[in-house]
């Protein structure tokens, strides 16, 4: 993808999110006629991994998500998943090293729903929240080459070893009830790495659940489809 197109893409995204926020605010003002509260939890999947595989076939990722409402406007959010990554031959050639990583991650945190609506049966939300994330992964380079045009290239390898990463994640986005008890939502996430116990020089290409291993701050996107399982009946 060319640089002008990338800039255009990012501009589009910025405008899109700005539009969504304004649209949501408008709804808050104009539609104040409902109550959508009921006890229970949701179980769903985050499609960030499967969709990402369309653009990066080296990576396979999947995660399950749950939301549990524990107070009037407050939700617990939990997520668990895995990510496996192996460089394709093209990627190895471009980067002069091979890379393999297998890992899992957990995220837990709280969300605040600031969508205020009095419409009966309307269970839509607009969340803002904070999560803690933890990933454990085993990674290594089966081989790498450091080029030297005069004395000759150096060939080496970095055996697989385990490292842990901890991060905080600020997230915001809407969720809507598509069908009875079936929810769809997306969030934009800012992930800030706080600790990584990496004992060797190799930085992870990708940290499961966090993203680009080079960065201290990553901006990501989650797209969740989930099913609500009530643990008590709604009061009609």
């Amino acid at each position: 993808m060319g640089k002008p197109l990338k800039i255009l893409s990012c501009t589009f995204i910025s405008l899109f999110f700005l539009g969504q926020v304004l649209d949501a605010q408008k709804k808050v003002v104009t539609d104040q006629s409902g109550d959508g509260s009921s006890g229970g939890f949701t179980l769903g999947v985050n499609l960030e991994g499967p969709i990402g595989r369309i653009f990066d076939s080296d990576k396979a990722a999947f995660s399950a998500v749950t939301h549990i409402k524990f107070a009037q406007k407050w939700f617990f959010r939990g997520e668990a998943g895995f990510e496996n990554l192996t460089f394709s031959p093209t990627n190895e050639q471009e980067r002069s090293y091979t890379y393999e990583s297998n890992g899992s991650f957990l995220k837990a945190g709280v969300l605040y729903d600031f969508f205020s609506v009095e419409e009966k049966g309307n269970n839509d939300n607009i969340f803002i929240g904070l999560n803690y994330g933890f990933a454990i992964q085993e990674h290594g380079s089966g081989s790498y080459t450091i080029e030297n045009g005069y004395w000759g290239d150096f060939q080496g390898s970095m055996g697989e070893y385990v490292l842990n990463t901890h991060w905080l994640e600020i997230m915001a986005g809407p969720r809507t009830e598509l069908l009875k008890n079936l929810y769809m939502g997306w969030t934009i996430n800012m992930r800030i790495k706080v600790l990584q116990d990496n004992e060797k020089v190799l930085d992870p290409f990708s940290v499961p659940g966090f993203g680009n291993g080079d960065n201290t701050v990553n901006v990501g996107f989650s797209y969740v489809i989930e099913y609500f399982i009530p643990w008590r009946k709604n009061r009609e």
Binding site: S9, M184, W186, V219, Y223
Partner: peptide, 20 residues
């Protein structure tokens, strides 16, 4: 609102993943 959110979210995923 729901349809629009759905449609734009999918579009955004495509652009975020491929573009930024």
């Amino acid at each position: 609102m729901k349809f629009r959110t759905c449609l734009l979210a999918v579009t955004a995923i495509v652009f975020i993943t491929a573009g930024c």
